[in-house]
Design a protein around this nucleic acid. Structure first.
Lengths: 343, 343
DNA sequence: TTGTAAGCGTTATCAC
DNA sequence: GTGATAACGCTTACAA
């Protein structure tokens, strides 16, 4: 079995309390005693048992981060930034993958609650389902009363829940992107959404529609396709359908960059050119957009920044009132995939 | 404070032992008693304390995954796959970011050892430094004697360490890539390496040199540039230097796809065309290579597969002898970024 | 400055 | 079937 504090104490000829004091350095210990203890520790290769420690102090040194998919750079960037801040406080950031499933998300939150993590960060948008949200609100409540901070990063606040929210202004970002296309002269703009009943999907589509309305462009149901997911595959499929339309759009917006990548591929494969024949735009500004062909016009979300802020609040480095909501502004990034429509 | 087993027991009018039995379902409990207990649990919103539990059973339900950088899809894919398998066994996978620093890596391994995780997966190549490796070997030894499995995924085995190794055949992959370029007629092939003294860097460069030697192409030191890191930036810089050479190469290989992306950009910005003027190739086959322009010829590493295998071993789903080493074969992926040299 | 001993919240081993 | 009770490995009053 593993070496315990008692083993070290015996070897050093002191009490286990003394060993604990040496290791934590929070009480005075004679220099010679300290030496002996430290020697015993290294001779035995002693490693504290985080469980026993956490049980005794009733406080863990972990911080939970729940994301849809670490292999998606959107979440990878967010998670990495959060972990960077956690590490400053010597906290271990646990990153959990839900695969986008609300059920898995709730399961992970419960798992993290069991671990008595210092904080839980829920990153990325979420499904807009009443049952799920009330259940989540319940868990957040439990977390709060157990002293576990909860940070919502990149999703809307939950009514009445004691969580700090850092939301992206998806609506505003989508509005400015669509405005840009309108200003370039586009009137028939295709739009491919993300997963249905998802906060990010809804907010971005709303912004798009608002911009159209502001410019008196009538809403055409047939131009807005349900992508079903935030991935390249779905972007490709939906774009193929849009391009097959008798009166095809002069521009296509993907609800995120991955979808837009699929659109780019579909346009290319149909023998048309971007942006000459069809303009394409995305959302998020993930690194690969720069190397896409043509480089992708998109809306930049400051993910690193947002992740850092969320991480600091979670790690207790920054104060934030439970219930506080702040909004992070996106920025329009104009590149080569958008031009005026062919006249 | 948080609700404890004793609180539940009091409320249900039973002993805490009974509550534990109901929750774990490993002993017979009368149906009526069970009902009462379950009601109390839900009324009080009881959540087990994983620390106390782990302390009592001397076994945690976590699994550690150590990577360089979650926001890099290479690691994201690996980590995601590992976590997927862990989750089948109801294990919580803790993903830790080292940022490529051996010091951080050792720190995280120690942190995970404290948590008494069931297993630790070290993913991705590592620095080839004797001190670091002996220290790591020591930690692996401690892990082994504490019953923590260690899996090395995507890095060379450590001599004598009780860890299971799943390595990529980087040398073989690089060899087949360079052979492909040679077969297309290239003789002046630029090569941009990853970070110095890094297992992946070394193995891939070795394979490249072997292929050159097999085809009697003399080794030209001036064509192999030290990228310094596996990123786009470095690829761009090194490529710019190669392109400025009086007798510039007809093809450039990046030690990974990110470097190759930088090369693509540098070639484009220098007014040359890929593959007409310069061919470009990468390594890893990350998703973005498909959307690069032109689409990237590369060497495919089955990351998802490798991650799954590592995850299954770590989670105890698959048996593997400590010390076992297996090699994962890469596959050449031919796309549009490579053509014959302009004659 | 150091040792003793009482928790921390579970599980597991006995009895009954 | 169920209830006491002793671990599990650590921290921290309280004594000495």
């Amino acid at each position: 079995m593993a070496v315990t504090l008692a083993d070290v104490a015996k070897r050093a000829g002191v009490s286990s309390a003394t060993v604990s004091r040496v290791l934590n350095g929070n009480y005075p210990v004679a220099a010679r005693t300290r030496q002996r203890v430290l020697r015993a520790v290294s001779e035995l290769n002693y490693v504290v048992n985080a469980y026993a420690r956490a049980l005794a102090v009733n406080m863990s040194d972990m911080l939970g981060v729940v994301v849809n998919d670490v292999s998606d750079p959107f979440f990878g960037l967010l998670a990495g930034a959060i972990q960077g801040e956690a590490s400053r406080e010597d906290l271990l950031a646990v990153i959990c993958n839900t695969g986008g499933s609300p059920v898995e998300e709730l399961r992970y939150v419960e798992l993290l609650l069991r671990q008595r993590t210092r904080a839980i960060v829920l990153a990325g948008g979420c499904v807009d389902d009443a049952d799920y949200l009330t259940e989540l609100a319940g868990l957040i409540d439990q977390a709060a009363s157990a002293g576990t901070r909860v940070v919502l990063c990149g999703r809307p606040p939950i009514e009445g829940a004691r969580a700090v929210t850092l939301n992206f202004d998806n609506r505003g970002g989508a509005r400015s992107l669509t405005r840009h296309l309108l200003a370039m002269g586009h009137r028939r703009i295709g739009y491919i959404t993300g997963p249905p009943r998802h906060s990010t999907t809804t907010e971005r589509l709303q912004g798009h529609r608002e911009a159209l309305a502001q410019h008196d462009v009538p809403w055409d149901e047939g131009l807005a396709l349900d992508g079903g997911a935030f991935d390249r595959e779905r972007g490709w499929e939906a774009a193929a359908r849009l391009l097959a339309l008798p009166d095809r759009p002069t521009a296509i917006i993907g609800a995120n960059d991955s979808i837009a990548l699929g659109v780019l591929a579909a346009v290319r494969e149909s023998g048309l050119q971007v942006p000459k024949d069809v303009s394409v735009a995305g959302f998020d500004d993930l690194p690969f957009g720069l190397d896409a062909y043509p480089s992708l016009t998109t809306v930049r979300l400051p993910l690193l920044d947002a992740g850092r802020r969320a991480g600091r609040i979670a790690a207790g480095l920054d104060q934030a009132e439970p219930g506080a909501v702040s909004t992070i502004r996106p920025e329009l990034i104009v590149r080569d995939s958008v031009a005026g429509p062919a006249s």
